[in-house]
Computed example of a mutant assay.
Amino acid sequence: MAEIMLQIAGRPYQLRCRDGEEAHMAHLAQIIEDKAYQAQRSTPGLTEVRTLLFAALFMADELNELKRAAAGRQEQLALDGDDEPAARAVEALAARVEKLSEALAARAADA
């Protein structure tokens, strides 16, 4: 296990992580630090706990928006995927209408 010192909301935190994950943990800590800074900037005078609470809320809001966007894209992809069978059905109906039209035209010519 590796040990890493992280700086979040102006305080140092010593954590353990799997060997090789130090850079990833530092990256995650930087994301939290950025959100904490954003909270402190927007609402000066927050306590450490409230700063971290607001940072967590900012990140939860972003995650929620990303999940919504991903669900919307998935739904759109599902709808786009359904276009192929519908297009084939319309083409088959158009071909059938043309045949019926030709048959009616032929009957009208014979009469």
Rank of each mutant, 00 (worst) to 15 (best):
R68E: 11
I4C: 01
A111S: 05
P85E: 05
Q40K: 14
E84I: 12
E62A: 10
I31P: 04
I4Y: 02
Q76M: 14
R16L: 04
E62I: 03
L15G: 06
R68N: 12
K35N: 03
V49D: 10
A105T: 05
L53V: 15
V90Q: 04
D61A: 14
Y13I: 09
A29K: 08
Q74S: 11
A106R: 07
D19Q: 15
A89E: 15
E62P: 01
A92N: 04
M59A: 13
N64Q: 12
A26R: 13
A60M: 06
A92F: 03
G72D: 14
A9G: 08
A108N: 03
A94F: 02
A29I: 10
Y37T: 11
E22L: 02
A71N: 15
D110E: 14
L28Y: 04
L66F: 12
C17H: 05
E91T: 03
Q38Y: 04
A108R: 06
E62S: 09
P85I: 06
L93C: 01
E21I: 02
E21H: 08
G20C: 02
R73L: 11
A87Y: 06
R73Q: 09
C17E: 03
V97F: 02
L52G: 09
A95N: 01
G72C: 09
F58E: 06
A109R: 13
A95Q: 06
D80T: 08
L79Y: 08
Q7K: 15
F58P: 03
T43M: 14
A94C: 00
M5V: 12
L52F: 07
D83G: 02
Y13Q: 07
M25K: 09
E84Q: 13
A2K: 11
Q30H: 15
E3S: 07
S42R: 09
Q14Y: 05
R107I: 03
A86H: 10
R107P: 01
G20Q: 05
V90C: 01
A89Q: 15
T47D: 14
Q74T: 11
I31S: 14
G10F: 09
A71V: 12
Q38R: 06
G45H: 10
Q74P: 00
E33I: 03
M1K: 08
R41D: 11
L63H: 09
